[in-house]
Amino acid sequence: MKIRIGYGWDSHAFKPGVPLRIGGLAIEHPEGLAGHSDGDVLLHAITDALLGAVAAGDIGSFFPPGDPRWKGADSAIFLNIALEEIQNAGYRIANVDTTLVLAAPRIGPIAGEMRERVASLLDIPLGDISIKAKTPEGLGLDHVAQAHATVLLERVEESDDLKVLHAEIGEEIPVSAGEIDELLGELGGSSPKPAIKKPAYDTEDFT
């Protein structure tokens, strides 16, 4: 399969006395988002979408919420692990589409800055990341922030030169003993001498 799709969703309640971080940005607001890490609901949703696209599990399987190592951790760490997973699977990001659902703060005035930050974290062009915001009208979720993320991955195709190199490495290339001696000499070593099998009897003792 040359393309894969991943979907991620996350939700955090607002909590007084903690800083608010969304999309890798510190945002001025009376309350932050409760969570074991920094509570960055948008980066968490993107992380789950990336992991899901390559069937690598979810954010909780890599970073259990009960593990003290991730208390207050920067969610960019989680994102980096997800990026490693998709690279190891042979894919790269084609585009990311996200939607934030929250009553406040207003995302519109900072959406451009947030896009730039997320694009930088993902190492993708700005045009490949979309961040939209909606209010939870009629849902009774004014004290909660939610994030939805969808990612499209495309398989990384090897260049023709790299394919040729891999084919050559995979072939059995005969090497002479003289070439081995020459190579080892250049490296400051010497080729191993073949073991001489002694006969079962003493050839000097014929009677």
Rank of each mutant, 00 (worst) to 15 (best):
V156C: 05
L100A: 03
F78R: 08
L139G: 04
A26D: 13
L187R: 13
I169R: 14
E157C: 01
A76G: 15
A53N: 06
L162A: 13
R117V: 03
A133L: 01
S11E: 14
A145K: 01
I110Y: 08
D181Y: 02
A94Y: 12
P68R: 11
Y201L: 09
I107C: 00
I81P: 01
A104C: 00
P105N: 08
P105I: 06
T135Q: 12
D142P: 05
D161E: 14
A26C: 01
I81N: 01
V144C: 09
E171S: 13
T207L: 09
D58I: 02
K198A: 09
P199G: 10
K132S: 12
E113T: 12
E84P: 00
E116W: 05
D128N: 14
I5S: 07
W70E: 01
N80R: 14
K132W: 09
V18C: 12
L121A: 05
K15A: 08
I124H: 06
D181L: 07
A149F: 06
A34F: 07
P64F: 11
E137M: 01
G140N: 06
T47G: 01
A119G: 06
G6N: 04
K15S: 11
A56R: 11
A76F: 03
D97N: 15
A73V: 15
A56M: 11
N95Y: 14
S120H: 10
G140H: 08
P136A: 12
G35V: 13
T98F: 03
L43T: 10
A13S: 11
S176Q: 03
K71E: 10
Y91H: 10
L51Y: 06
G52L: 05
L33E: 05
G60K: 08
H36R: 14
L43P: 09
G189V: 06
A89Q: 07
I46H: 03
R115G: 09
